[in-house]
């Protein structure tokens, strides 16, 4: 059997693809944070809670309505986005003129309410969700077996990121979005309904988090607590990569997932902290972040 640094190749590749799966979640979540930050200039602390809602709604759709994975993939991100839009209209929009920290604290409070509420309803134990039939099994790549579901998560996440990039950089709607990010007042004075764009942007951002939750449901135990650990990790990803560039978010997310996966192989004790350690090093050596445009 081929070994690399004393680790059998299949197990190395296994951790590598698992790392890419986690990296895909980091990428989609940090992308959503970056899109929201660009337009609303707030840090969405309830992003993790929205990710958790995505996974939990997927489980609930199966448990209570018998709706399978593919229906959940369509409906759950939309419902999370709808919740986000309601939050934006009712609460967030009243804070745009204030210091950024109020929106951070509000979304933190909302995250606590969502997490606590679902913990009250469902308890803290994880709920299993099985991989849809179409995606069970593995592909034989010769040097390794690649589980189909992992391939699907990585592929779907990258497609979503690419789609988002295309939308923002290459379409007319994206031009509106970039214009409104740069100079919201003037953009509105050209006849573009900026407040509605802000609302939809927030909905889209948290919808992405919900989508990541759907993708994550079969890979992990679905639990009300899965969001808060994730959001802190994604914050570290965002500090490392900066929020100025879409491709930067995606590359940083995937890269850190891979590094985390490799750490699990070579030095498992450090796998929980490696992303934070990298963040500390980046803060030390390159305070603006890898893709940052200044602090």
């Amino acid at each position: 059997m081929i070994e690399i640094f004393g680790v059998p190749l299949p197990s190395l590749m296994g951790q590598l693809t698992l790392g890419l799966v986690n990296g895909s979640f980091y990428a989609v979540l940090s992308l959503g944070l970056a899109v929201i930050f660009g337009m609303l200039h707030i840090i969405n602390f309830c992003h993790g809670a929205c990710y958790m809602l995505g996974a939990l709604f997927t489980w609930m759709a199966m448990e209570y309505f018998g709706l399978g994975y593919w229906w959940a993939l369509l409906l759950v991100p939309l419902s999370v986005a709808a919740i986000g839009i309601v939050l934006e209209r009712l609460l967030l929009q009243r804070l745009y003129k204030l210091d950024y920290l109020y929106a951070l604290l509000l979304t933190f409070g909302i995250a606590l309410m969502i997490e606590g509420g679902f913990r009250y309803l469902f308890g803290a134990t994880g709920k299993p969700y099985s991989i849809p039939d179409e995606l069970t099994g593995a592909l034989d790549l010769g040097f390794m077996f690649l589980p189909k579901y992992r391939a699907w998560v990585i592929g779907a996440s990258l497609t979503v990121c690419l789609f988002t990039w295309y939308m923002i950089e290459k379409t007319r709607l994206g031009a509106y979005l970039r214009a409104a990010t740069e100079n919201p007042k003037l953009t509105q004075a050209f006849g573009i309904n900026v407040p509605v764009m802000v609302m939809l942007t927030y909905g889209f951002g948290v919808g992405l988090a919900g989508l990541a939750g759907v993708l994550a449901a079969p890979t992990t135990q679905v639990s009300p607590l899965m969001g808060s650990n994730m959001i802190i990790l994604v914050f570290a990803v965002v500090v490392i990569g900066g929020m100025g560039s879409i491709l930067g978010s995606v590359i940083t997310g995937l890269g850190l997932g891979v590094v985390e996966g490799l750490t699990k192989v070579f030095y498992p004790e450090a796998s929980a902290v490696i992303v934070f350690v990298i963040m500390a090093i980046v803060l030390w050596l390159r305070p603006a972040g890898l893709f940052g445009k200044g602090a």
């Binding site: 840090i43 950024y100 802190i232 570290a236 934070f276 963040m279 500390a280 972040g289």
Partner: peptide
């Protein structure tokens, strides 16, 4: 020393992440 190298929102996120690092340690 690490966190004040970034301002505003990044400062808050950095302190949270560094505290999580300590938590895992």
């Amino acid at each position: 020393t690490l966190a004040i190298r970034r301002q505003g929102i990044y400062f808050a996120m950095s302190t949270l992440a560094l505290a999580q690092l300590m938590f895992f340690i």
